[in-house]
């Protein structure tokens, strides 16, 4: 029987969503043009050449190495692209993806990337043409709600702040705005430089839908323990206790 990884325990909606994010089996909600994603990332003008740090691997004459023969390079590594980043801030008010889950998604599903999680933001670094593809995948999928998540290369705070009146995550640099037509528009790139034209990111999720798709356990949403008053805790807590016990007593090495 083929092994199917479980990724995350629990039967709550948050547990199920966490499994979906980690497995990469995500629903596609929108299709933002690649040129618009490139413009918001702000590393190169859409259509411009990729800057490189070394010649393409084929021209370099690589040493005879069994690992290099087994592992096919990503498109960006093969072309010698520079390493670039995309950084996200997700609101703690039921954003679909919370920082750790973007990292798990990246580490499990994206080849040749370096995810990093901080308290209120999440960054992925990879070769430029790879990170563009990974960023587009994040934008298009249910990992992102355009009102509660945004790309912020600097001045990132917003994760733990109250929302704006119109339901948008607070952004000091006003990189996104709610249009009169109810769509969210990207007006600046991730470091706050105005874009040549506004990017239509589509309609935000309703509050109910964001709560349905979120990966954050909250006392006023879905609790990590599962149903309040149930005789048995959800498996997520039991697994956590189990890991804590193994780690505390045996340093993760039960022998």
């Amino acid at each position: 029987m083929a092994y199917t990884p479980q990724f995350y325990p629990g039967s709550t909606s948050v547990g199920i969503n966490r499994r979906k994010h980690m497995s990469g089996n995500l629903e596609k909600l929108r299709d933002i043009p690649e040129a618009d994603v490139v413009a918001i990332m702000g590393h190169r003008a859409p259509g411009a050449d990729y800057s490189s740090t070394h010649p393409p691997l084929k021209e370099m004459g690589e040493p005879d190495c069994p690992i290099r023969q087994i592992v096919a390079p990503t498109a960006g590594a093969a072309a010698g692209d520079r390493v670039r980043y995309s950084q996200w801030t997700d609101s703690m008010y039921f954003a679909p993806s919370i920082p750790y889950w973007r990292s798990y998604w990246g580490a499990i599903n994206c080849k040749g990337c370096d995810p990093g999680t901080l308290s209120g933001r999440q960054i992925i670094e990879a070769r430029e043409r790879d990170i563009e593809a990974y960023t587009k995948a994040q934008y298009d999928s249910e990992m992102t709600d355009v009102a509660l998540c945004s790309m912020r290369g600097c001045t990132v705070h917003g994760h733990s702040l109250r929302l704006e009146e119109n339901g948008m995550q607070f952004d000091m640099l006003a990189r996104t705005e709610m249009g009169k037509d109810g769509n969210v528009y990207g007006v600046k790139d991730q470091v706050g430089i105005p874009l040549d034209k506004k990017v239509n990111l589509g309609k935000p999720m309703s509050e109910a839908e964001a709560k349905k798709r979120t990966t954050i356990f909250r006392v006023d949403g879905v609790q990590m323990c599962g149903t309040v008053g149930a005789r048995k805790y959800d498996e997520a807590v039991e697994a956590l206790h189990h890991m804590w016990e193994l780690r505390s007593k045996w340093g993760y090495r039960p022998e």
Partner: peptide, 12 residues
């Protein structure tokens, strides 16, 4: 939270 008149730091 502060509302700066220009981007305070970073490439922009």
């Amino acid at each position: 939270p502060n509302l700066p008149r220009s981007v305070p730091y970073g490439p922009g």
